[in-house]
Design a protein around this nucleic acid. Structure first.
Lengths: 341, 341
DNA sequence: CCACAGTGTGTAATCGGTTTCATCCAACGA
DNA sequence: TCGTTGGATGAAACCGATTACACACTGTGG
């Protein structure tokens, strides 16, 4: 195979076109400043040699990487797929690659050791952090690229945040359920150390208070882990409670769907016996039975905004510290009037 | 801010340690070949200066990129999230980054123009193609990095393939349904130009034949697009058929769940009136009511195998052309004995 | 006729590492 | 004592682009 020949470099093009390498480079990056005739000659030579630019060389010279790193808590979670899709869309328009890293992929080693080497200007031009449980010290070191937090956030990390209005969603949920007459509402939360959980709970409690309900005690919430499995397991815990709630607000849709499945399997009717609400509006929310009432957040948009915010930071601007994206209520069949107590 | 100082380079470390840059480089990449004393001195100097390696420079010299590109047909589709997770896991162990690109992100431009610049050795060290509908000519050009096809495949593209046993899954589905006594089985397929669709249908037809059923006519299949929405829409099309099938085999779980939802909403009972099967075993298959009988494929494993196959190719080996991963039947509540015909 | 501005181009330094090759030195056997 | 071997190290070439700077040339105004 004579395929093994070296790929053409800029010098090969220059020789063929009868110009210097500088002129070829200029033709590529700023065609306007070379003369018509020269440009034609260079383009002809590029076509003949089959030349393609070596981006590593360009990046070295220009002190950049040409890519942005997304730190995802769990790549396998479909929730992040849509966010990544939004990020990818914006990055591509700016000729930046999307690098993806799963922060939980190495279970036994501390995140610090594994992740630290990647938080470096020679690895990426910017970082979007989607994991709210990382150590802020990880990012507080010289050489760390510009940072943006999205979706979740890290206490004590000053980087800009692009978030859904989690508290607002909690309030909407409380308003919806209390509006249907529910007075004993269980809250199935996410992990307690999650920033999402805290914000949604705070908004939910505020919403209950605004509806004139007394502050619920500790027995009015169950702690989950955002999985459908734990939602199903929560059904049994719920049924064992001394007084049964007439409605449940779940911190995400997976748990809500798991819970509904568990409740219906146990013989309850949704929403006649008990109402169930979720949060996120994943696609399946529209395809379970009954359809899941939930709080919609626009994940692709959140990804886009995060990417745009990061680009602003990379350009040296200082965008607003926190960007909050609206959420709204999507009413489906899983919630209904409270049964007569 | 005196933060604006240049990050330390290898020369700074060398000076401080009183050695040459070559020695520092060797200490970093192959500590065994420098003497104990020198190594200590260099490590000390690295710690003092806070030096970190510039990977762009290393990559330029070593003629590599340090990353692998995954071409995904639709990043927002959770199906690919798990595959990417598997890919990511293997790549990380080999100190390679994962670059992700959505092949459909630019709707109006031809994939050729958009994608071609990325299929270059200066952009990635290898490519995993997850999109079966790309033009093979895209990859048949000088400078294209080593290639592996995963999950879907492209006719006429010689690169190694890592696939689930789609035909085998189709056979399993046919065997399961015919074993339950079903004789009139509808097949809700994916898009007709998808390699997945063709393989699953071929296996399904073979399974029917093996069960002694006559070859079904064109009226025995409906064509879908892998979305839950089209599954739900298919319910109406099914109910309008002159003779109603007693079972439906869907080419993926989303369509199956959508179909079940539509059928149940229309008053049918699953599985008493009609059995429904899916393909993939997505997480929700276990959390719908009834639970969805389906064909399980191990997506994370498929991602891992694809990455491993690519690494072998990158190392100059020529791995087997097609690696087929086992699938198996997961029986849940959505399928049951055929109603008396 | 000369100074000067403006345009287009070439030369060479530069980005920050890796790696080849040469050199030095100590240990060893003849 | 001397050549040989092998291990550790340094000097400099190299990866392939970008870009600061110099320079040549043209046209203009004084």
């Amino acid at each position: 195979m004579s395929d093994q020949v070296r790929p053409p470099r800029i010098l090969d093009v220059a020789k063929l076109a009868g110009v210097s390498v500088a002129t070829v480079s200029r033709t590529l990056s700023n065609p306007a400043i070379v003369s018509e005739a020269t440009r034609k000659a260079v383009e002809e030579a590029i076509a003949q040699t089959g030349y393609t630019l070596n981006f590593t060389a360009r990046n070295l010279r220009q002190q950049q990487v040409g890519g942005v790193l997304a730190l995802v808590p769990n790549l396998a979670n479909p929730f992040f797929a849509q966010i990544l899709s939004g990020i990818s869309e914006v990055l591509r328009r700016h000729h930046l690659s999307l690098l993806v890293m799963d922060t939980t992929a190495v279970p036994d080693q501390p995140a610090m050791t594994v992740l630290a080497p990647y938080l470096n200007r020679s690895r990426s031009d910017g970082v979007i952090v989607l994991d709210g449980r990382l150590d802020p010290a990880l990012f507080d070191r010289p050489g760390c690229p510009p940072l943006v937090q999205a979706c979740e956030w890290i206490g004590g990390l000053a980087a800009p945040r692009v978030l859904a209005d989690n508290a607002g969603g909690g309030r909407l949920a409380a308003a919806h359920l209390t509006g249907l007459g529910h007075r004993r509402i269980l809250h199935l939360t996410g992990p307690e150390d999650s920033s999402l959980t805290r914000a949604r709970r705070q908004g939910f409690l505020q919403g209950l208070a605004e509806a004139g309900l007394p502050a619920p005690g500790p027995g009015d919430s169950l702690s989950g882990d955002f999985t459908a499995r734990c939602g199903r397991d929560a059904a049994a815990r719920l049924l064992a409670l001394p007084t049964r709630p007439t409605a449940v607000f779940c911190d995400n849709d997976e748990m809500a769907i798991g819970l509904m499945t568990g409740l219906i399997a146990a013989g309850l009717r949704v929403p006649e016996d008990i109402s169930v609400m979720g949060f996120d509006n994943i696609e399946m929310a529209d395809f379970c039975l009954p359809g899941l009432t939930t709080i919609r957040q626009h994940r692709a948009r959140l990804g886009r905004r995060a990417a745009e915010t990061l680009l602003a930071r990379m350009a040296g601007q200082t965008p607003e510290t926190t960007l909050t994206l609206n959420v709204d209520l999507v009413t489906r069949g899983s919630t209904g009037k409270a049964a007569q107590g």
